[in-house]
């Protein structure tokens, strides 16, 4: 009887130690779920969801504090991916946070720009180059189209230009879907 208790206790202690050790040795840094959510978010950093960028929104979703349908740039597809990841039902995009728009980049009218640097300070991804009293320019390849540079501009010289479809951006369309042949007789 005693031997059995000792054996069981011994096993419990050994397993406990092993678990305790591995909890320290294999500790996961950060929140892996937030990482996964962040990987799905479009990284526009526009703040339309009400958070200060994609990462804080991802963390809020991971904690269950925010809904999954607040990201307009991610669109319905993004909501679906988040729903798949989190194992919840996808829901329509929350229109109060804005509607999805075609992908665009900001464009500074260089004739009007006064070089005030306000847009540079607003850009979340440092995609505007320029200095005080010097003309500013958008680095189009790095612009996420977040529109955060529009409100601070005192002379309204920034416009959003949708990305036009050209040869390098062209994609093959889904082939015309097969239609079942419905003759007059069979439908009758």
């Amino acid at each position: 009887m005693l031997a059995a208790i000792l054996v069981m206790a011994g096993i419990a202690v050994a397993i406990g130690l092993a678990l305790g050790w591995s909890a320290i040795r294999f500790k996961v840094e950060g929140n892996p779920l937030a990482e996964k959510i962040d990987a799905i978010l479009p990284q526009t950093q526009c703040g339309q969801c009400g958070f200060l960028g994609c990462r804080p929104y991802a963390e809020a979703i991971a904690k269950g504090e925010a809904d999954i349908n607040l990201c307009p740039p991610g669109g319905e597809e993004g909501v679906k991916k988040l729903a798949d990841l989190l194992g919840v039902e996808p829901k329509p995009l929350d229109e109060t946070h804005g509607a999805p728009k075609p992908k665009s980049v900001a464009f500074i009218d260089e004739q009007t720009c006064i070089g005030c640097t306000l847009c540079i300070q607003a850009c979340p991804v440092d995609a505007i180059s320029g200095a005080a009293k010097q003309m500013h320019t958008i680095i189009a390849a790095e612009c996420t189209g977040c529109e955060l540079c529009l409100p601070p501009c005192p002379v309204d010289c920034i416009t959003m230009v949708p990305i036009a479809e050209d040869l390098p951006h062209w994609k093959w369309k889904h082939p015309v879907v097969m239609l079942k042949q419905v003759s007059g007789d069979s439908s009758a």
Partner: peptide, 13 residues
């Protein structure tokens, strides 16, 4: 790739 670049630049900022 564009999203990764944006994330990297945002974090660096």
């Amino acid at each position: 790739r564009a999203a990764d670049l944006a994330r990297e630049r945002h974090e660096f900022r």
